[in-house]
Amino acid sequence: MIKNSNKTHDLRVALVTGGSGGIGHAIVKELADNGFAVAVHYSSNKLKADTIVNEIVKKGGKAISVGGDVADEKCMQEAFDMVEERFGGIDVVINTAGIMILSSIAEANLADLDKMYRTNIWGTFVISKQAARRVRQGGAIINFSTSVTRTKLSKYALYVASKAAVESMTMILARELRGKDITVNTVAPGPTATPLFLDGKDKQTIDNFSKATPLERLGTPEDIADTVLYLATSGRWINGQVIFSNGGLA
């Protein structure tokens, strides 16, 4: 059951960018299990997105897949159009799409910097622009950052700079939507066991991250999905905030 007492429509609809990825997939599943119709966005892996959609539909849920580059305004406008045409509107937009390339500042490849900024900053702006125009009253916009904006780990400077921009956009958009009863927040996960996080890390590095939190484990995509579900439903008094879902990481 959807827990949002401020619900204004019989069918609540969510668009999840990066919905075929690790955290995105967990969020899609959590929303579908709680009665949302879900649009599963993918960048290149249409097969995986369609598989997720088929799983939801087989369980009696409502879902579609939508594809495209989040930084392409025309493409994302068409994606939002598709969701509205299929389900009648959009209540929640969750922007998990992002890439992470690690490098020291001294050795940074500026081509990698451009690639990451295109998705993480430009893409967030494009999605936020469409969401600000289309999300229905009582809805929510949820962006994604990282807890490394606070922990300041070496080799994360380029990635953190892109996510700090996301946090700033989020806080400003929350104020720009004054009077529309739409919340805008950012979730900043700590170390979470996803392909994006695990890629290129040896066992010792992963073990060190696991021990860094008081809970002495990595987060799971489901941990992050729980936070997102709360913000998308009953967390109506949380607005313009960065929520650190990181198990107590300092």
Rank of each mutant, 00 (worst) to 15 (best):
G68L: 12
A111W: 05
S103Q: 07
K115Y: 12
I94S: 10
D114N: 11
A106K: 14
N109H: 06
K62L: 12
F125H: 13
Y117K: 09
I94W: 01
L102V: 01
A79R: 12
D91Y: 10
F87R: 01
N109I: 04
E84G: 11
F80L: 02
T119R: 01
G68N: 05
F87P: 00
N95L: 00
A71K: 03
G123W: 03
I105S: 03
A111P: 08
A63R: 00
D112F: 07
N95F: 09
V70M: 00
D81K: 13
F80T: 03
G67V: 11
A71M: 03
A63L: 04
G61R: 07
A106Y: 11
G88R: 11
I94C: 03
G98R: 13
K62I: 01
T124W: 00
I99S: 03
G89Q: 04
N109D: 15
Q77P: 04
A108M: 15
F87W: 02
I101M: 00
Q77K: 09
N95I: 02
A63F: 04
K74R: 05
I90H: 05
T124S: 14
M76Y: 02
G89M: 13
I94K: 06
W122R: 12
C75W: 00
I121T: 07
R118L: 09
I99A: 06
D91P: 09
I64W: 08
G89H: 11
F80M: 07
K74C: 08
G61D: 03
A79F: 07
E107N: 15
D91C: 03
E107M: 15
I105F: 13
A111F: 06
L113V: 08
I121Y: 09
N95W: 05
T124A: 11
R86L: 01
D72S: 09
G123V: 02
E78N: 11
F125W: 15
G88C: 14
E107T: 14
M76C: 07
K115N: 13
D91M: 03
G61F: 12
D81R: 11
M76S: 15
I121K: 11
W122H: 15
A63T: 09
I121E: 07
G67H: 02
F125Y: 13
N120Y: 10
S103C: 01
N109A: 07
D81G: 07
I121L: 14
N120C: 14
N95A: 05
D114K: 15
G61A: 13
F125A: 08
E85N: 15
S65P: 09
N95C: 15
C75S: 15
